[in-house]
Simulated assay, not measured.
Amino acid sequence: MRTAPLGRGGVRATRLALGCAALGNLYRPVDDETAAATVDAAWDAGIRTFDTAPHYGLGLSERRLGAALRGRPRDTYTVSTKVGRLLVPYDGGGAGDDLAHGFAVPATHRRVWDFSGDGVRRSLEASLERLGLDRVDIVLLHDPDDHAEQALREGYPALERLRGEGVVGAIGVGMNQCALPARFLRETDIDVVLLAGRYTLLEQEGLAELLPEAAARGRSVVIGGVFNSGLLTDPGPGATYDYAPAPQAVLDRALRLKAVAERHGVALRSAALHFPFGHPAVASVLTGARSPEEVRDSVAQLRRPVPDAFWHELRAEVLLDPHAPVPSVR
């Protein structure tokens, strides 16, 4: 599978990356065997970039990913993890589950926001232990929405030092919004932005500022959430958008997208996977999976060409920002 550089450093990402939140039992349990088989399926398909975080299942995702990659040559894959939430054990081991945060795991720890320099280092050290690795390739400041100043003034400089020391290869920020990552691009020397849900076939908010800023500065963007919480896999009653039931207007737009796709013999999820690659700043698309079948489907959909006529009709139907660059079969 093709790779692309992340920013100006030496770290590269495969065109399709595996998001590992589901390996942390996102919404519902995944057993150990299925989690391992999911990583194996990604590997067999040529995927060599894997994204995880302490937040995902209170460390379960990191532990499972590390176990699944163990034994594979370390220089053949890229691992991304995140900092900003320290996992602090509850006294007595805690009680109940973590479903309030979206993960079907025992609530053994609490998350403590910390974007200080010390917090960044402590978080990374704990992640390396859970992963069973001596280094990771990419470290991202994770959702610093309400902690912007600390993340900029303390967290980012700590990551910059770690990059300078060679402890990590690339640094950046991972968020579900555009304004703060654009500020990071202007004010810091990050390599990459992981942008979730804000540059998709359904909405192109990232096109206004973030993506042009990244392209102008030679930085890279990894696009996550291309299915908008599942809405673009199969829009219909009960479909979710931004992790909640889709508003009717949003659902109607997704159904119009699906109708255009069907007229051109294209699966909507295939078009959703292809779309971000039209922009020159996009290096990789990150998709989550909770089974080998989901991995294989994403790879198959990305391999299917989307005809130029599909994009032309989307523009004619005013279903796509007129300035959004699109991939071309040519």
Rank of each mutant, 00 (worst) to 15 (best):
R110P: 07
G117P: 13
R122Y: 09
S127T: 14
V105F: 00
G132A: 11
E125C: 14
A104R: 07
A104C: 11
W113M: 09
V112E: 08
E125Q: 14
R130N: 10
R111Q: 09
R111H: 09
D114G: 07
A126W: 03
R121M: 05
P144K: 00
S123D: 04
H142A: 06
E149R: 14
H109P: 12
W113T: 15
F115H: 11
R111T: 08
D145C: 04
E129D: 09
F103K: 02
A126L: 11
A126I: 12
R130I: 15
I138D: 02
E125G: 14
L128W: 08
V136F: 01
H147W: 12
R130K: 13
L141N: 03
R122D: 07
S123H: 00
A104M: 02
V139F: 01
H142D: 08
L131T: 10
G132K: 12
F103S: 01
H147Q: 13
V112H: 07
V139T: 07
S127N: 10
F103A: 00
P144W: 04
D118T: 15
R122C: 10
W113N: 07
R111W: 04
D134R: 13
D145A: 06
S116A: 10
W113P: 05
S116L: 06
L140E: 00
A104S: 10
H142L: 11
L141G: 00
D137P: 03
D145T: 12
H109I: 13
V105I: 07
V112L: 09
L128G: 10
L124A: 12
A126Q: 07
E125T: 15
A126P: 08
A148S: 02
V120L: 04
D146V: 14
A148L: 01
D118K: 04
L140Y: 00
F115S: 07
V136M: 02
W113S: 08
D146I: 14
V112N: 06
E125P: 15
D145R: 09
R111V: 05
V120G: 01
V120W: 03
V120S: 01
F115W: 05
H147K: 06
L131V: 12
F103I: 11
F115M: 12
L141T: 02
S123R: 02
V136R: 00
H142K: 09
L141K: 00
A107F: 03
D143T: 13
A104V: 14
F103R: 01
E125D: 15
L131A: 05
L128E: 06
R122H: 09
I138M: 00
D118A: 11
H147G: 07
R130G: 05
G119A: 11
P106V: 15
W113A: 14
H142P: 06
F115R: 03
E149S: 12
D146R: 13
E149K: 05
G117V: 14
D146F: 13
H147E: 10
G117F: 07
P106L: 13
F115K: 03
L131P: 02
R110C: 10
R135T: 15
R122T: 13
G132E: 08
S123N: 08
G117Q: 08
D145K: 02
V139H: 01
V105M: 04
D137T: 03
D137R: 01
E149A: 14
E125A: 15
L124T: 10
W113K: 05
D114S: 12
L131G: 05
D118C: 04
V139Q: 02
H109G: 08
G119Q: 01
D118S: 11
